[in-house]
Structure formats: C-alpha cells, structure tokens
C-alpha cells in the first residue's frame, strides 16, 4: 500500500484531444497531483455527478506536463464514452495518486523495452520520459488490431505490429519482440508492459522462459481503487509457490511477470 498522501479533488478538463474515433486524451489541471504522481500509478475518476454510472473509472496517467496531467481514454463502455465526450471546463472528481510505480529507478538494466497493446500505450509516454531522464535507452513495441489503432503519442523508437498487417509487422507483438530480441544481445534489458491480459500472459511467459526481467501493468475492474471494496483481486504466486489473491489496487497495478498468474 502506498504511503503517499491521497487526494480526492475536482480536476478541470482544460483540453480534450481526440486522437481517433474511439481514443482521446484529457488534459486535466492538477497542480496538487501533477508533482507527486509517479510513472505507473493511476487515478480513479468519477465521470459525472450522477448514480449512473455509479463507480469511478481507474485510468493510468499518460503524461505529466507542468501542473497538468493527461489521461488517455479508449471507449469501452458508458464511463469511457462520457470521458471521450467531456467538454472543456468539466470538473472530474479524481482520487490520486493510486497504486505502485513502474520499476524505473532500478539500476539493473540499461535498455528498457516498452511493450504495449491497444490502450496499453497510455502509461508508456510518462514511463519513456522518466526512463530517458535516468539515461536509459528506450525502445517501444506497440501492438494493435490495425494501423489506425496504433497510437504513438509521446513515444519514440517504435516497432509496431498489427493483427491485419496494415502497419509494421503482421502478427502479435510478442512474436515481433521474439524476432527483434537478438539485436539487443549483450544489453542489460528490462521489459515494461501494459495491455490486454491475453497479451500480457503471453509476454510474461515469453520473458520468464528466457530469464528476461519483465513487469506488467494490469487492468482490472475496480470499485474503489483504495482497497476497501475487495473487488479487484489478481492471482499472484506467493513465497510458498501457491497462488494467492491480492488486490490489484494495492499490490499493483504493476506486478512482476514471475509473480502474476493469469489462469483462474
């Protein structure tokens, strides 16, 4: 559990940038949260003041720019639709900072492979910036269904894979990583990842088999984001080697690939 102070504040939308017909970036004025939020952490946002939808939406931070934070949204349901449509000036009640961080401060790697799938690119821009500041080399691997779904905002050094082959490598992102991995021979690598569970599972298996250090940022249904609803368990391998429930909002949302167990 994070020992950072938590804030629950109304953040004003200062810009709504539509990236695609289903993906946008909300720029929020957040003078209190921007200086304290770290790469990999998330915020929990009430999308309106009504009972429908009832619960907040957990969203990773895309970037911090001065006193503003940016969150990237892909429409998957009513909550994200409201956020996609949010007019400038809207105040969104936001709980932050939540969860743990990516392991960007470690000194056991020099090259970071950022592997993302779909809306999993959202936290990568902040991670890349954080890593570059620490003198790390950053390479992005981005997977998506089709060319228009490949979002590269804030990212450099990109290798893309699409399911239909309309951009970059045709096939899934783990296969692309497998093909390109040899070029990093001799480098001290660490994989940072975010995306759909199926992708993360396959990536974690790939990395674990090769002894490649990997951490995954996991998405889950969440009720509260602070550990009181018990609604977001994930299966994590304990010291006894057995699977145990851990609440993602407290234990994660970044988890070591050797610990996370996807099969339920």
């Amino acid at each position: 559990m994070t020992m950072q102070p938590l804030y629950d504040l109304p953040l004003t939308v200062v810009e709504n940038i539509r990236l695609t017909s289903v993906t946008n970036v909300l720029v929020l004025d957040a003078p209190v949260i921007a200086p304290v939020i770290r790469s990999g952490q998330f915020v929990n946002v009430k999308v309106n003041g009504f009972h429908q939808p009832l619960l907040r939406r957990p969203l990773s931070v895309h970037r911090v720019v001065g006193s503003q934070i940016e969150i990237m949204i892909r429409i998957v349901g009513i909550g994200t639709q409201i956020l996609y449509d949010a007019p400038v000036g809207t105040a969104l009640q936001t709980l932050a900072p939540l969860g743990n961080t990516f392991g960007y401060n470690r000194d056991d790697f020099d090259t970071a492979l950022l592997v993302s799938g779909g809306i999993g690119v959202a936290p990568m821009a902040m991670l890349e910036e954080t890593l570059l500041k620490r003198g790390k080399k950053v390479v992005n691997f981005i997977g998506a269904r089709s060319a228009p779904d490949v979002i590269t905002r804030g990212l450099t050094n990109i290798h893309a894979a699409t399911d239909d082959g309309s951009l970059g490598f045709k096939g899934n992102i783990v296969r692309l990583l497998a093909e390109e991995l040899p070029q990093f021979n001799g480098e001290r690598l660490r994989v940072f990842s975010c995306g759909p569970n199926r992708m993360l599972e396959s990536l974690a298996q790939f990395c674990n088999e090769r002894g490649l250090p990997c951490e995954v940022s996991i998405e889950s249904i969440m009720g509260c984001g602070i550990g009181i609803c018990y609604g977001c368990p994930v299966r994590v391998r304990g010291e006894d080697g057995l699977a145990h429930n851990q609440l993602l909002c407290q234990y994660g949302s970044v988890i070591d690939a050797k610990e996370i167990m996807f099969e339920v």
Partner: peptide, 23 residues
C-alpha cells in the same frame, strides 16, 4: 479467508454486484 476468485464485482444500473466471498 482468501475469498472468491475474480471476477468478483460488476457495475449494474445505479448499483453493483459483488461476490467477494468474505475475504
């Protein structure tokens, strides 16, 4: 008690369902 396996909760119209399992 470790409670039930995921998925444990889901949002419903103006409400939610939970099956935490008394963790």
């Amino acid at each position: 008690r470790e409670g039930n396996l995921p998925q444990r909760m889901v949002e419903t119209p103006s409400g939610m369902l939970n099956a935490i399992g008394l963790a």
